[in-house]
Simulated assay, not measured.
Amino acid sequence: MTGTAPPAPDLVVDGTGLLCVQLLLKLRGQIADAPVSTVVHIITTDPAAPLDLPAWCHLTGHLYLGPISDPDREVYALRLTETARATRPDAPWRPA
């Protein structure tokens, strides 16, 4: 997202204190009924998030928008897509 302001979030998922598995479970649950084109900001303290979130977006087909500049916390953004692939509710890193 170089050179452009990040889009404002339609939904914020607070994953503070959660590691990858719990973060993805929470994220999947909160976006399950969200409409296409929803911009999601994910707050996280997981040091693996900069790798895990783009990988999960690649797996599911959602658009990873990248990190959001926030001096107080780590925030990443994604946009839900119409062509996203479903994942299992109990294992959001596995196809449904």
Rank of each mutant, 00 (worst) to 15 (best):
G3P: 05
T4H: 02
A5F: 06
P7Q: 04
P9K: 06
P9G: 01
V12Y: 10
V13T: 08
V13D: 05
D14W: 10
G15Y: 08
G15Q: 07
G15N: 07
G15C: 12
T16W: 02
G17Y: 05
L18K: 13
L19K: 13
L19M: 15
L19G: 13
V21R: 15
V21P: 03
Q22K: 14
Q22H: 14
L23P: 05
L23T: 12
L25H: 15
L25C: 10
L25P: 11
G29N: 15
I31E: 09
P35S: 05
P35Q: 02
P35G: 06
V36D: 09
T38G: 00
T38Y: 01
V39I: 07
H41E: 12
I42C: 09
I42A: 09
I43P: 03
I43R: 14
T44W: 00
T45I: 04
T45G: 11
D46H: 08
A48P: 06
A49R: 04
P50H: 02
P50V: 02
P50M: 05
L51K: 13
L53A: 04
L53T: 01
L63N: 03
L65Y: 06
G66F: 03
G66S: 07
P67C: 02
P67T: 08
D70I: 00
D72N: 10
E74H: 11
V75Y: 01
Y76Q: 00
A77C: 10
L80F: 04
L80V: 11
L80M: 13
E82W: 01
E82C: 02
A84V: 14
A84D: 11
R85L: 15
R85S: 14
R85G: 14
A86R: 14
T87M: 14
T87R: 14
T87A: 12
R88P: 00
R88F: 08
P89F: 12
D90K: 13
D90H: 10
P92A: 08
P92T: 13
P95Q: 10
A96G: 12
A96L: 11
